[in-house]
Simulated assay, not measured.
Amino acid sequence: MTSPKAGEMLHLRGNALGKGDPVALPLTQSSMFHLPGAPDGHATYGRVDNPTWVHLEHVLSHLEDAPCLSFPSGMGAISAALFATVTAGSRILIPSDGYYVTRLLADRFLSQLGVSVEERATTEFTDGGFDGFDVVFVESPSNPGLDMIDLAAVARDVRAAGGITIADNTTLTPLGQRPLDLGIDVVVASDTKAMGGHSDLLMGHVASRNDQVMERVEEWRRVSGAIPGPHEAWLLHRGLETLDVRFDRMCGSAQILAERLTAHDAVKQIRYPGLPDDPTYALAQAQTARFGFLLSITLEDEAKAEQFINTCPLLRPATSFGGVHSSAERRARWGDDVDPAFIRLSVGCEPVEELWQAIEASLNAL
């Protein structure tokens, strides 16, 4: 399945080139710019703008179909979105089973600035409604549990209650799920993962069709100094040029592996939105373009989980996900509320039969 935006994305720069211009995006590595006279309309200073960012954000905006700003990490993007939308006295709701660093940010910093923070599990997120919440932060599928919620319904109900919604779309990317089209106000993502795709950069982005929010996000970046490096922006731009191909391979392989893992005796439980008996299947069919490249398996115990992760030659025992190399880890080691033998498996770009043979052999050896 190919995104209708993928082909056009590859030629956004090319169709604006003059004769003799380089086809590949140049890297502008400069903190200063030649600036005689009035600075209006020109690059001014490296904390404010950079030509490499500008084109990267043009591509990201094309993918999101919305204004977009880049950040030096996914948490940089999440921080910008939250600090741009809350003030002292605000009340926010975040998932208790989502990415744990988002909870840390809310607990250690936002709550100390007079922001009231409440948590709900993804499967119970709509219980109690959204009255009184200024900002509702959602993550679907949740990381690492892969539970999903109806983004359109949440967006509608939060808007009716007078709040705004922020969705973390890291796990599916704009090619797999489009929260803004479902009514979500702000999208954040860690481009460190599948968007960059090669495990060699840290980046993130914020996208929104709300001009006031984006003005605040831009001001936060400029004033706080939470800016991406031009080299990282260049790397991300290069990674985006193969996103469609990589994402298609990863999602297709994940579906095949999930179907085979359900039948393996060593696997006590498996979660993947593309399995018909998964609790998220019906919603994922309606809400997403692809089921994603993440799946989870739970083995018999922690020792066997560690043995599997550390002995499979085509799995990297590493945190993070979305790279060309398949990777796996026990999320309990970071404090996630999951079984000690729960494994988050990120499917990469290896040939699927070769990958399955390695996974099956490692499971058989437990």
Score class of each variant (00 low, 15 high):
A318R: 15
S30D: 11
D65M: 13
N364F: 15
S296Y: 01
T123P: 01
V48F: 13
D244H: 01
T28P: 04
R290F: 08
H55S: 05
P273F: 07
G196N: 05
G162L: 10
T171F: 10
H34D: 14
D127T: 10
L93N: 06
Q177A: 06
R159L: 07
L283T: 07
H62D: 06
V54M: 05
S96D: 04
D131F: 01
V23T: 07
A189P: 01
F247H: 12
I92Y: 03
I164D: 01
G128L: 05
K268V: 09
H11L: 12
D337S: 13
V352Y: 03
F293C: 04
H198T: 13
Q307K: 13
P26S: 03
E360H: 15
L146D: 08
D278P: 10
P36H: 10
R330V: 15
S208H: 09
E241Y: 00
T311K: 09
L180G: 07
A16I: 09
M1H: 14
N143R: 11
S116P: 00
L261P: 08
Y99M: 12
P141E: 00
I343Q: 12
W334C: 12
K268W: 00
P4H: 08
I227P: 06
K5C: 01
G46T: 00
L25S: 04
V217Y: 04
E300W: 04
L366N: 13
L25M: 11
D49W: 00
E232H: 06
Y281N: 11
